[in-house]
């Protein structure tokens, strides 16, 4: 039994390393000279910070990272809150039109973004949100994915906790905010990762809705380097990619501890 466990461990770590291999090339390439970037061997003479420096020199990346943080964090926080509410209502509360509402929400998942891009632009423009943070943030909040996942989570959430709260005289809303939401960490944490990453990496929408340079998000700013300009060094592209991924990596390490924690239901079941 012991031996089996260590075999599994080794197997999992090896698979994990395979998953990391492409990222290894990203990191290594970002610090190589343009000529040696395709060379797989590592030589100290190829090591350089020039790519990173070039990215900082050619783009206003600090401001862009700031913008991206505002957009991604706001979208994520607001989305978590309202999606949890909606998911809870769909999983736990009874009201007329429930099945229809759920079906309707899910159906919005099936619309490819590129199809509604033009009307969406029209809506946002008419609401006066173009070229502002609002235009970057508000349309990205509404996404059936989060609602669906919260609903799924609350369907399997132990009922006993809420029943106990009702006995204590708490209202439904009160129960949700005071008791259920704080215990929703197992689902909030992965969804936070999902929403933050998706918005951090969003490119198409910010590109079309914003014309102001000072509101450029990271991906748009990087497109100036990565995009099809006349001179695109691979090493600089990889450096730009690495910089743009760092905030997400940091987020992963921060929430890592909270990933995959079961709901503490001890003593109830």
């Amino acid at each position: 039994m012991k031996l089996r466990k260590s075999t599994i461990t080794i197997f999992a770590i090896v698979c994990g390393l395979l998953m990391l291999a492409p990222i290894y090339f990203l990191v290594v390439g970002a610090f190589k000279t343009p000529d040696s970037v395709f060379d797989l061997s590592l030589r100290i003479s190829d090591f350089t910070f020039d790519n990173i420096k070039q990215v900082f020199a050619e783009t206003n990346i600090v401001r862009a990272i700031f913008n991206s943080l505002i957009v991604s964090v706001t979208v994520t926080v607001v989305a978590m809150l309202i999606h949890a509410m909606a998911g809870y209502a769909l999983a736990r509360l009874n009201f007329p039109g429930k099945t229809f509402t759920f079906g309707w929400i899910i159906s919005t998942l099936m619309v490819p973004f590129s199809v509604i891009m033009i009307p969406l632009y029209m809506v946002v423009q008419n609401l006066g949100m173009a070229n502002s943070y609002l235009g970057l943030i508000v349309p990205m909040i509404f996404n059936a994915y989060g609602i669906f996942l919260f609903r799924q989570f609350y369907l399997e959430f132990p009922k006993e906790l809420e029943e106990a709260a009702y006995v204590e005289g708490l209202s439904i809303a009160g129960t949700f905010f005071r008791l259920v939401l704080p215990l929703s960490k197992p689902i909030i944490v992965p969804l936070t990762i999902g929403f933050f990453t998706a918005n951090w990496n969003n490119y198409l929408w910010p590109m079309i809705i914003n014309q102001k340079e000072e509101l450029n998000v990271v991906q748009v700013a990087l497109a100036n380097i990565v995009g099809g300009g006349y001179e695109t060094e691979w090493s600089v592209m990889l450096a730009a990619a690495l910089i743009s991924a760092i905030p997400t990596f940091i987020l992963f390490f921060i929430v890592q501890r909270h990933l995959v924690e079961g709901v503490k239901t001890t003593g109830i079941k």
């Binding site: 033009i118 198409l204 590109m207 079309i208 497109a223 100036n224 995009g227 099809g228 300009g229």
Partner: peptide, 14 residues
């Protein structure tokens, strides 16, 4: 846009 494809296939048409 700094990027040709997005310019002619997305930004301008939209």
């Amino acid at each position: 846009t700094g990027n040709l494809t997005d310019y002619s296939n997305t930004k301008l048409p939209v």
